[in-house]
């Protein structure tokens, strides 16, 4: 029957009534959806230049397809490969040193009895999180300066020669990772402190009866109790391996330290925004985004196993 494929009158009317009755919520949603299309989905369409010989004059749609040529260039490009390797190395260092820092801090805060002392210390260590990376970089550049920097002043006290830290490749990663810990460890401890606050107090009470000391309680009760939180935060971290805070890298690195400092996003920035090789840089970006997507999805699946709810 022909009219089988057409919506019945009833469905039409119902739909019409629905929109007539509920048009306001669609009106409220519309600006947000349009915003997402214009500012986030349209660039995804523009990603096709990774497979094209892009020219500004022809535009995204008009530029000719060239297949995977950019990706072949990319994987033969020493600088790009170095950037991928640097990204992974910096992330690994962040994971090794930056990840435990807020946990240790939260465990220590938990042992402090004096409420005002604890509060004051917390207020201070949360602060750097709210400071812009430009200022953080300004502070780091000043503090590590060869002439007036406090670090070299202290080296001088011990009779050591002053070092121009920010021009030496071997110093970049320690400084970068250390800066990250200084800036984020305090703020990162909030999540773990909340988890510690949720531990059942009766566990501690029975431990006291059994004559356990604080050190034992920390290892036998607190840490096992917050283990799910630790695991989830670890998984999120692993999902974000490609996301090195490149803003801070741009502010702190220089040609002399590219060797250890250049990460994928800073390479894209120089290649694309500074040298105008948009298509090749976009290919690098697509590679980065796909790897990040796979990692995040894997992380989400893993976290489902550890907690009832997923991360999203």
């Amino acid at each position: 029957m022909a009219d089988k494929n057409l919506p019945t009158d009833g469905r039409f009317t119902r739909l019409f009534d629905h929109f007539k009755r509920e048009w306001q919520i669609y009106a409220m949603l519309l600006p947000t959806i349009v915003w997402f299309i214009v500012f986030l989905y349209k660039p995804m369409y523009g990603l096709q230049i990774a497979f094209k010989d892009y020219s500004i004059f022809r535009g995204v749609a008009g530029s000719p397809w060239i297949g995977i040529e950019h990706f072949q260039t990319l994987f033969g490009n020493d600088q790009f490969l170095r950037a991928v390797s640097n990204t992974i190395k910096i992330s690994a260092l962040n994971l090794l040193f930056g990840f435990p820092a807020p946990i240790i801090l939260a465990l220590m805060f938990n042992e402090i009895l004096h409420a005002t002392y604890k509060r004051t210390a917390q207020t201070i260590v949360y602060l750097p999180h709210f400071i812009s990376s430009v200022i953080i970089a300004g502070i780091v550049i000043t503090a590590f300066s060869p002439t007036l920097g406090i670090v070299n002043i202290i080296l001088g006290w011990f009779g050591l020669d002053s070092i121009y830290f920010l021009t030496q490749p071997q110093w970049f990663r320690p400084i970068f990772v250390g800066t990250g810990i200084w800036q984020e460890a305090g703020f990162g401890s909030i999540v773990f402190l909340a988890a510690i606050a949720g531990v059942n107090p009766s566990l501690y009470e029975s431990a006291v009866v059994d004559g356990a000391n604080r050190w034992q309680m920390m290892w036998k009760i607190t840490i096992p109790s917050i283990l799910p939180t630790i695991l989830i935060m670890l998984i999120i971290r692993i999902g974000n391996v490609m996301e090195v805070s490149f803003e801070l890298v741009i502010l702190l690195y220089q040609p002399a330290t590219y060797e250890t400092a250049d990460v994928v996003n800073t390479w894209i920035y120089r290649q694309g925004l500074q040298s105008g090789q948009y298509d090749l840089a976009a290919a690098g970006g697509l590679f980065n985004a796909v790897v990040a997507f796979v990692l995040v999805m894997t992380a989400n699946t893993l976290s489902r196993r550890f907690s009832r709810t997923s991360l999203w």
């Binding site: 660039p43 523009g46 990603l47 985004a289 995040v296």
Partner: peptide
């Protein structure tokens, strides 16, 4: 719609397409 919005947390077109889009706009 929820997925449409959440997807942008997992996948991002990156610096270059965003910049070119801003120029086109």
């Amino acid at each position: 719609f929820n997925l449409f919005i959440a997807f942008t947390m997992w996948f991002n077109a990156g610096l270059i397409p965003f910049f070119l889009n801003m120029r086109d706009l």
